[in-house]
Amino acid sequence: MSQEIHYLETGSQDPFYNLAFEETVLRSRRSGEYLLLWQNDNTIVIGQNQNAEGEINRAFVEAHQIHVVRRTTGGGAVYHDLGNLNYSFITDVGDAERLTMERFTRPIVEALQGLGLQAEASGRNDILVEGRKVSGTAQRLLRGRFLYHGTLLFDANPGMVSGALNVDPAKFESKSAKSVRSRIGNIREFLKTDMDMPAFWSYLKKTLAGSGLVEDHLTDEELAAVDELKRTKYDTWEWNFGRSPKYNLRNKRRWDGGTLEPCVEVDQGIIRQIVFYGDFLAVSPMDEVTGALMGTPFRREDVGAVLDRFPLRDYFGTITRDQVLDTIFYVD
């Protein structure tokens, strides 16, 4: 990262506002490097390609008045409370060939190591301490700008994490709450010298920004854009729950690159509607791909020809073209 890093805080614990704030920064600040630190209170944040109702424990969510919001990045569902601290890096894409997750995970891993923790990057998008997950990350590309964000479990409530989320049996051996808790850890429990959230926040801000820290604020115009985006997108049922089309064909496969679940409505051999659910690490919205597939004959070669028009890594992460087709046309 360059020496100068603009630092922003949302000043809110409202998840709908915070995601609108982050997207506004991504859209309006077209140069320079930015660091955001922020918190959501009592929230499930689902990935852009996930089926909300399939990810949440509806009865638990309603009983505990948990917010549910969809983000614009891929990956899986996560639970946020005030024991979490979220971070966002926004920067230029630069040389796309050199755009690796290590570029962004390394500063977080090194910051945790600076506290004496045995931290390491793992798998597609996790950061572990002593083998337990303390951070999940995701990313997005938008017109030459790159968003990389994640959550740090500092002192989160594991009972809420396990109760709020439905556990995919394809990902975990057991559906029990115990199996979820065994996978995650809180940073605070690993510290040799205790610190509270304000101290951790201050440490992370200083460590990630370093001597190049520039305290920044959004303009009145940008703040108005945040409010408008919150109202028209993030705080709507249509965005968070209403992205589930009718379908008459549904398959689900788990690949190294994540879970992929295409749901397709086929009428007279033609794709009328299609959606791809899953926790794969997309960096671009799926709308262009699904829009191009509508009206396509439901044949492997025709669907493959449409997929060939797109840089599939942007939309499906490391899930390959043939794996996408194998999932759509899978016969058990």
Rank of each mutant, 00 (worst) to 15 (best):
E110V: 09
R299H: 07
A224C: 12
L36R: 02
Q65D: 01
Q39T: 08
V331E: 15
Y277P: 09
D95N: 03
V134G: 02
A119F: 04
V167G: 07
L153H: 04
S174A: 14
D41E: 14
D279I: 01
S135L: 04
W239T: 09
Q268H: 13
F276M: 00
E102F: 13
R70Q: 11
T105C: 10
N18P: 11
V275D: 05
Q39R: 12
L165M: 15
P297H: 05
H149N: 15
I56Q: 06
Q65G: 03
D279P: 03
V331T: 15
L260M: 11
D314H: 04
A138Q: 07
D196E: 15
S88K: 03
S176V: 11
E228W: 14
P297W: 07
P15K: 00
A199N: 06
T105Y: 08
S176T: 15
Q3V: 12
A77F: 07
R313P: 09
G75C: 01
H149I: 13
M1N: 01
A282E: 05
E215S: 09
S174I: 08
D322W: 13
S176I: 09
R98S: 00
P245F: 11
T219E: 08
G317P: 00
P15E: 03
D41R: 10
V283E: 03
E102W: 13
Y315P: 02
A20R: 04
F329I: 10
V266Q: 04
E130Y: 05
D227T: 14
E33C: 13
V226R: 01
L8P: 01
I90T: 01
W38K: 00
E215V: 04
L128N: 03
E265H: 12
W239C: 05
A224R: 12
G317R: 02
F172T: 09
L208G: 00
L128C: 10
P311F: 09
A282Q: 01
Q65L: 02
I319F: 01
S135P: 04
D92Y: 08
G242I: 12
D227Y: 11
A282K: 03
L115H: 08
L152K: 11
E62T: 15
L281W: 07
R103K: 14
A209Q: 03
S88Y: 00
R243Y: 06
H217M: 08
L82M: 05
N186C: 14
D216V: 10
L223M: 15
R300Q: 10
R183A: 11
L147P: 05
N40R: 12
A170H: 13
D92K: 09
G185E: 03
F146W: 04
L218Y: 03
R27E: 13
S31Y: 11
L128Y: 01
A164G: 07
N18K: 11
W239S: 07
E261H: 05
Y315N: 05
G295L: 10
N57C: 08
M197K: 12
V129R: 00
L8D: 01
S2V: 10
G212I: 14
A170P: 05
G75S: 07
T100S: 14
V324F: 12
D168S: 15
T327P: 03
V324W: 10
F310L: 12
L117M: 10
D256T: 08
A119P: 06
L218T: 07
S2D: 14
V324C: 10
H64E: 15
R253S: 06
K175A: 14
E55A: 11
A292S: 15
G123C: 11
